[in-house]
């Protein structure tokens, strides 16, 4: 039996410390942005969650390929855990975005390239996670899920590229300057770096816990199956 591993404990401690520092820097130390005011502070957490969402997606690709090559269920569980955590991070980007956009742009949602890409990515993630809920057989779920994981992840560059191109063909809406304009102050840079580090650590921690959880679930299922066999033999 495995308890909580030393790596998990270290990761948990690190995440806790860095997240605490990120919150202190983002909400307290970093100066208030001149034009946007305090609402700009949400940007640290917003950008902080985009990066792990991407990381999660590429890990899904990697782990899915590894699963198809080795047929080791551990890889599939890692891919699924990463996909689910990625979905949470993508959701966070989509929630914090409009909260920032309403006071800054005046609208909750604009069909800007970045917003559209993120929404589409969220749907791809959702499809990947949802698909598994509707397949009963374990090996089939892993096999089919891995194929979808690979297709979904390879679509991400196109989602980004097509949206960028799409944007260049049309005049920009009310969006101008925006998020990049505030990052000149060194304390703001620190807040951003800390937020990025904190969310990356959080991603690793959650993905590890998730994979562990799925592993335990798999083990319990195996034990149940074995118990059934024993009872039948009696």
């Amino acid at each position: 039996m495995k308890g909580i591993s030393a790596i998990d404990l270290v990761l948990l401690g690190l995440t806790f410390i860095v997240m605490f520092l990120a919150i202190v820097w983002a909400l307290g130390v970093a100066p208030t942005e001149a034009e946007q005011g305090d609402v700009q502070r949400i940007f640290y957490f917003h950008l902080g969650s985009i990066w792990p969402a991407f990381l999660a997606f590429f890990y899904v690709l990697y782990a899915s390929v590894r699963y198809l090559m080795t047929r080791d269920m551990n890889w599939d569980r890692k891919a699924l855990a990463s996909g689910e955590v990625g979905l949470y991070f993508a959701s966070m980007v989509l929630i914090t975005g409009p909260i920032w956009a309403k006071p800054t742009w005046g609208v909750w949602w604009a069909w800007d390239a970045r917003l559209t890409s993120m929404l589409v990515m969220w749907f791809i993630f959702l499809g990947y996670v949802l698909l598994r809920e509707y397949i009963d057989e374990d090996s089939k779920r892993a096999r089919v899920g891995s194929v979808l994981g690979i297709i979904g992840a390879s679509m991400v560059p196109f989602v980004y590229m097509s949206n960028r191109w799409f944007e260049t063909q049309h005049p920009k809406p009310v969006i101008a300057g925006g998020e990049d304009s505030g990052i000149k102050d060194p304390q703001m840079v620190w807040a951003l770096v800390l937020a990025l580090a904190a969310f990356t650590l959080l991603y690793f921690l959650l993905a590890r816990i998730g994979a562990g959880l799925f592993n335990n679930e798999g083990r319990i299922k195996d034990l149940h199956a074995r118990m059934h066999l024993l009872e039948e033999e009696r």
Binding site: T116, F123, I124, L126, I135, V144, I151, M155
Partner: peptide
């Protein structure tokens, strides 16, 4: 087609993938 909800899941999975 491997799932229980194939009629609903196909558009839900396919359409986001073909946005590009």
């Amino acid at each position: 087609a491997n799932t229980r909800m194939k009629d609903v899941l196909f558009p839900l999975v396919q359409l986001p993938l073909v946005v590009p």
